[in-house]
Amino acid sequence: MDVKFVRTICPYCGCGCEMLLQVLDGKAIGTVPSKTNPMNQGKLCIKGWNVHEFVHSPKRLTSPMIRKDGKLREASWDEALEFTASRLREIKEAHGGDSLAFLTSAKCTNEENYLLQKFCRVGFGTNNIDHCARL
């Protein structure tokens, strides 16, 4: 039996409560609020207390999918990435970088947000990047 507690941050609201995710044999099984954190001081709300539950939901997307004959079908990473990269290249070449648009995410990390805006700005020479800050 392998048990550990991993210090991390609740992914729901902007409060950013610190918590310990309880992990048993590679599965998140519980959440404990961080007592020493000066913001949440040992407290979480109902969403935070139950945050581990969606992590292992059977409905998670677990494989890349490509639309074929109108339906999304499982594909390998190789195939999905190659196809995506070539379609993006084609569109950029045919219509210019401004014909592409990117949505980054208030749910992803700073690092991921940074990379996507860099990919958009450098790869396509466009500033067509936004996210749902206003929503």
């Binding site: 569109i91 014909s99 592409l100 648009a101 949505l103 980054t104 749910k107 991921e112 996507l116 958009c120």
Partner: peptide, 8 residues
Amino acid sequence: KGMVIMGE
């Protein structure tokens, strides 16, 4: 023409 959406 094309759009890339991450986590939205």
